[in-house]
Write a protein that binds this DNA or RNA. Structure first.
Lengths: 370, 370
DNA sequence: CTGAAAGCGCTTACAG
DNA sequence: CTGAAAGCGCTTACAG
């Protein structure tokens, strides 16, 4: 119980009869270590063991050295649990990859009131870590700009753009995944496709639409109609059906008149469009997929939060779709971050999405199409 | 893209026309801050904002200040996933509590070959954190002793003892939970109980047995038989049934002859005893609970890892039992750790276990008992 | 109320 | 191959 000070390199130096600088060379390993005589090395290491030495990482990182800590910052609170469930695969990927490369992981989860900001109180907590993986939708752009200005290494999960700066990120390859689904449909014989997307201007929305156009072109078809749902990405849950059923019913009529046999739906974020579409189709007597093949460009709303008034707007169909490789994205982010730490250039990686077979696609009805 | 150095307190001092020490007083808040003239304060804060200042936490913690980081160290690897599933509730509790108290959480998950040790290379990584929550069974006692010697604040999840030292831990209250189950059984009319425990000398095993004896005494019954299963806590899975069925069959016969109507089983760690007992009982024509009420003092083996040869040794019955408040233990550990950081004394907390109703208990058969 | 100064424990050129 | 020295950015007595 002696309140003995922790041993420092000075203590070791004294015990081993060398200078503190030499101790540092031995302890920190790396290049310097090789230039120390073997017997000196041994003496230092012995003394270190004897004294129960352990580096002070604060001092080390103060000198600009590495901490061997990666950070994970989430712009949205990771709690409560249903959010947590969404983020969990990302975390898992980040955790595993971090452990595999021999780093520890610092979860920046300390709660601050209001929207989460990196630089609260002008304090950038992230810098305890050597670099950081960033996650979340409601990104504070001022924070991001500040991080760039500070030259702090970070990698975003999901495509993010900042004018005039090249950010590093890993993002799902929505474009290719969407194009592949188009080709699957045309391969089944569909010749009239329609495309439905939310009314926002986010990167994922644009990427998917570009994939749709690419697929249509690859299939040798003329341009196909794209419809923007005249509703924001995330209307209040209890109003979604009211807001959507009118437009969707109208669209369904239009498509039928146009001979459309297949539909691709970009679900947007946290969206209930696909559930609403399912209900509207039932009412309109449109069978999926017999009359209309439907493909979902992402995940349906999670059934987890299905309760109360919301429960009716959860789809239980097994949509033909693709899913995000969330764990893979987390892993890829870590590896990209490591490159950055080794002074690699800023890079943008895409990771393939995973196709899900589902049962909402079949050949077009006989006699349909051009 | 100017490689501008991050602003330091010196820069602020220059900009605000004060000394760096004054900047420190203002920035670090606390007592000092109040003794600085209001206009000086303002000037410093303005300059700090203008320069985009953020404290260097490494420097701060080098001076012995707090990092506002708590660590979580697991002696066993948290991966692969089935282990992860076991530990997940602990992690969740630790994470939530840590976030709630305004700290960040450092997961010490960096992989080292061999059994996990804190002091690999004589380096104690834990000290980046202000304090640490420790988790896991295969504890390295040398590590623990070293931590104590270093006066590093830590809290164990689960009862741990180190000769001559008072460790801090939070542990499930096995004793009370077991006693309560005894009283439940005697309340139903049982008068002859038997107790079955694994052949180890661990704290949880002793705590439960003590709870059994206490319950028996509280119920006003004479001492009841305790049987030690002549098999280690975790025999190889493919041999468990062979090893257990003989002894269990014999015990079953003994109990029947003795008029035992209720059995309490300490499942030990990662144990398959309860599943083996279920099978043996079926073969011996003993119905649970009609002939014999059975209470499980903990969790049955997780059905998650049920595959191959192992599958037959997973019980699917809804045993009357108690479960560990894993999230609660994690939370309690964090709060205890915080007390320690505020120079609180080492403490040992127990957290109640949660009773699970189950359906393996009923009144004794008519005509049975003394 | 503010400043000068020491020092936390390390790493890293730079001499020798 | 080893040592002396500077300095990373802070906090904290201690003077004034």
């Amino acid at each position: 119980m002696s309140p003995r000070r922790r041993a420092t390199q000075v203590d070791i130096a004294r015990a081993a009869g060398v200078s503190q600088a030499t101790v540092s060379l031995v302890i920190s390993g790396g290049h310097g270590s090789e230039q120390v005589a073997e017997h000196t090395r041994t003496a230092v290491l012995d003394a270190a063991t004897r004294l129960g030495y352990s580096v002070n990482t604060a001092a080390r990182s103060l000198k600009g050295g590495r901490n061997h800590i990666l950070g994970l910052y989430t712009f949205e609170s990771v709690f409560p649990t249903d959010q947590r469930d969404f983020y969990y695969p990302f975390l898992l990927g980040v955790e595993r990859a971090t452990a595999e490369v021999g780093y520890d992981l610092l979860l920046f989860s300390s709660v601050t009131p209001g929207p989460r900001r990196i630089y609260s109180d002008g304090i950038n907590r992230l810098k305890v870590a050597d670099g950081c993986v960033l996650l979340g939708r409601q990104v504070d752009h001022a924070d991001l700009a500040e991080l760039v200005r500070d030259d702090f290494p970070f990698v975003f999960v999901g495509r993010r753009e900042l004018p005039g700066v090249e950010l590093s990120y890993v993002a799902p390859d929505y474009g290719t995944a969407t194009r592949d689904l188009v080709l699957r449909l045309t391969g089944l014989g569909h010749r009239r496709l329609a495309y439905l997307r939310p009314d926002d201007d986010q990167e994922p929305t644009r990427d998917r639409e570009a994939g749709f156009r690419a697929g249509v072109a690859d299939a040798g078809l003329p341009d196909q109609p794209v419809h923007v749902l005249p509703v924001g990405s995330s209307p209040p849950v209890d109003q979604v059906l009211d807001l959507l059923s009118g437009p969707l019913t109208m669209l369904l009529t239009t498509w039928r008149a146009d001979g459309v046999t297949a539909l691709l739906v970009d679900p947007g974020e946290n969206d209930r469009t696909i559930a609403a579409l399912e209900q509207v189709a039932v009412r309109a007597g449109v069978r999926i997929p017999a009359d209309l093949s439907v493909v979902l460009l992402g995940e349906p709303s999670p059934p987890l939060s299905a309760r109360g008034a919301d429960a009716e707007l959860v789809s239980t169909r097994d949509w033909t779709r693709f899913t995000l490789p969330r764990e893979g994205l987390g892993r890829a982010a870590v590896h990209l971050l490591l490159d950055l730490l080794d002074d690699g250039p800023a890079r943008q990686l895409t990771v393939p999405c995973l196709p899900v077979e589902g049962d909402t696609v079949c050949p077009p009805p006989v006699g349909a199409g051009a």
